[in-house]
């Protein structure tokens, strides 16, 4: 009788344990990929982005970008604000190049140079996590404004990522991104991100991302995704030598 009780109790403990671990670690990659789907559809995409920069709560600057993203860690950012027209930043794996207005020559830049600017190019050009980060579930059933959420820890699995570590919160039911803490390689908390859902060209998507600067506390960046279009972009557009010919980018 006593043995049966022990076995029964052990079974109850095992059941409770399996019930609280709703998500196995090998599901995490799928969770992350699903979260990415709300930010960017699969395949090559052209994203029209508007960035608002706030200082002390007031609108300080506005910027416009066209971002050409292709799987395989490739992004080309075309600066569309009048004062920056002609400037481009190309990212391929962990390598970066910049073309300045009036120049036809791509210049190799460092990861730190890519970070500079009010809305760093990395924030605009990198819209997925599953290719660049290894994820672990840290906590479940985290209540964020009434939404049960998962807390994931993302660690960069390659050099060249803008943030070395990310604490990401996604909804527990659909894995919709809710918010994230973004850490630099130095360990410093750089920004906190909040994601807003909406509809973009008939698709349920993240329509904006608010970045609260944790180093310059009076600054806030709002990234609005205005349009997203799946479009095949030739590989040569991601060749730094081709940047001098890139006057006409695909629409």
């Amino acid at each position: 009788m006593f043995k049966l009780t022990i076995i029964r109790n052990l079974l109850i403990i095992l059941l409770l344990f399996s019930a609280t671990s709703l998500f196995a670690q090998d599901d995490v990659a799928t969770i992350l990929a699903t979260a990415d789907q709300f930010r960017l559809p699969e395949g090559a995409v052209i994203v029209t982005t508007k960035v608002e920069l706030f200082k002390n709560g007031e609108l300080d600057k506005q910027r416009e970008y066209q971002v050409y993203i292709k799987p395989g860690h490739r992004s080309l950012v075309d600066f569309r604000t009048p004062s920056e027209r002609g400037q481009k930043v190309l990212m391929v794996d962990d390598k970066f190049w910049m073309v300045l207005p009036r120049s036809k020559r791509p210049v190799r830049i460092t990861p730190t140079q890519k970070l500079l600017g009010e809305a760093s190019t990395g924030d605009i050009a990198t819209m997925t996590w599953h290719e660049d980060y290894d994820a672990t579930i840290i906590e479940q059933d985290v209540d964020i404004d009434g939404t049960p959420s998962l807390k994931l820890e993302l660690n960069s699995n390659r050099s060249g990522t803008t943030y070395d570590r990310i604490e990401l919160y996604v909804s527990q039911d659909e894995f919709i991104p809710i918010k994230a803490s973004l850490y630099l390689k130095s360990g410093k908390l750089a920004k906190q991100a909040q994601f807003t859902m909406g509809e973009l060209q008939g698709r349920r998507s993240v329509v904006s991302m608010t970045l609260l600067d944790q180093i310059n506390k009076n600054r806030e960046t709002r990234v609005h995704y205005q349009a997203m279009q799946s479009k095949e972009i030739p590989d040569k557009f991601y060749n730094p030598a081709y940047l001098s010919r890139n006057n006409e980018l695909p629409d």
Binding site: R108, I109, T110, P111, T112
Partner: peptide, 12 residues
């Protein structure tokens, strides 16, 4: 030639 040797430095 140009080479990025760290997050902060490049040589050419």
């Amino acid at each position: 030639a140009a080479l990025v040797i760290s997050n902060e430095m490049e040589i050419h």
